[in-house]
Design a protein around this nucleic acid. Structure first.
Length: 272
DNA sequence: CTCCAGGCCCCGA
DNA sequence: TCGGGGCATGGA
C-alpha cells in the first residue's frame, strides 16, 4: 500500500520521542507495533511511503494513526515565513514529523514511565511490560511475532514486585494506579475522549504519578489535543536559553503542540 | 567512574 | 503557593 504525502518522514517520526515502539529494521525501513498490530514501513522517497498492509487496513487504522489528512505543510510554511530564527531552524530540521494518534492507555503508561528517563530507557521498559503483560501475536502478512501493549485489565492485575523486576523503578506504583483507574472505570475512554482539554487534564492529574507534564503528553499524543504545550527538560532549556523565559506560548493558538514537537526534536538533536 | 534523563511526590516555609 | 530533596535505573 503506497502512501503519498509531502510531510511523512519515517526516520523523523521514529526519532521524534512521541512513539516508543517504532524501530529501524533496515535502510529506510521501520517496524511499528500499535493497536495490537504489526506494520512495516519503507521510505521510498521524500514523498512516498510503502506500508505492509492492505488498503482496507490502511483506511481502517493507519491513515488516521498518522494523521494523514492534516496539513502539516501549512504549519511548516508559517514557521518558515515567520521572524523567529529558532523556529525556522526547528521547522526545517523537523520537516516530515507528524503528531501520531496513538492509543490512549499506551500513552498513559508510556509517559508515566518517561519521567526522569531517557528515550532508550523508556523503550526498554515498555518492551519489558509488553512481553510480560501483553499478548503474543504473529503478523499474518509478514510472519513476524511480537507482543501487543497490555490491556488495562491485564496490567491492573500486576503486582508491584513483578513490575519492579521490569526495571521501572519507583514508577511501579504509578503504573499500577493508572492501570487500575482505567480498568476500574474512574477513567473511561469514551468519556475522556469527549472531554475538553482542561477536563481531560484534570482527570489525568488526579491519578497518583501523573503530573502536569505527563498529563499534557497524554492529552497531546493519546487524545490528539494538538494545542497542548508539554514542557519537559528540553523545552525548559529552550525557553530559558533561547528565549530568556519570554516565549509566548499563545502565538500558535490551536496547534502549539505541533510546534512544540519541532522545537523538542530540534533541541534534542542539533548538538548530537 | 559520574552525570543525566520528555518528572512527580512530599515536605517545610 | 513555591522551592528543593529524594527517588530507581540504565545509557552515555
Amino acid at each position: 500500500m503506497l502512501v503519498k504525502n509531502k510531510n511523512f518522514n519515517l526516520q523523523q517520526i521514529a526519532e521524534s520521542g512521541q512513539c516508543f515502539r517504532m524501530n529501524q529494521i533496515a535502510e529506510n525501513k521501520y517496524s511499528l507495533i500499535a493497536y495490537d498490530r504489526y506494520l512495516e514501513l519503507e521510505q521510498i522517497d521524500e514523498e512516498e511511503v510503502e506500508l505492509s498492509c492492505s488498503e482496507e487496513e490502511y483506511e481502517l487504522i493507519w491513515r488516521d494513526y498518522f494523521d494523514l489528512d492534516y496539513d502539516y505543510q501549512r504549519i511548516i510554511d508559517t514557521l518558515l515565513q515567520g521572524k523567529d530564527g529558532f523556529l525556522k531552524e526547528a521547522a526545517e530540521f523537523g520537516y516530515g514529523i507528524r503528531i501520531l494518534k496513538q492509543d490512549f492507555f499506551e500513552m498513559m503508561i508510556s509517559f508515566i514511565i518517561s519521567q526522569n528517563k531517557n528515550i532508550p530507557g523508556i523503550k526498554s521498559c515498555i518492551e519489558a511490560i509488553c512481553k510480560k503483560y501483553g499478548n503474543y501475536m504473529v503478523c499474518e502478512t509478514t510472519g513476524v511475532s511480537y507482543y501487543s501493549f497490555p490491556a488495562p485489565e491485564a496490567l491492573a492485575q500486576a503486582d508491584l514486585k513483578d513490575l519492579r523486576e521490569l526495571k521501572v523503578g519507583y514508577r511501579d506504583a504509578y503504573i499500577l494506579s493508572a492501570a487500575k483507574a482505567v480498568a476500574e472505570g474512574q477513567i473511561n475512554l469514551s468519556v475522556i475522549k469527549n472531554c475538553s482539554y482542561e477536563e481531560a487534564k484534570a482527570k489525568l492529574m488526579a491519578i497518583h504519578g501523573i503530573g502536569e507534564k505527563v498529563a499534557n503528553c497524554i492529552c497531546l499524543y493519546g487524545l490528539h489535543h494538538i494545542g497542548v504545550f508539554p514542557v519537559d527538560v528540553w523545552i525548559k532549556r529552550i525557553l530559558k536559553e533561547i528565549y530568556q523565559d519570554e516565549f509566548n506560548i499563545r502565538q500558535f493558538d490551536g496547534y502549539m503542540g505541533i510546534v512544540q514537537q519541532y522545537m523538542f526534536y530540534y533541541m534534542r538533536n542539533k548538538t548530537a
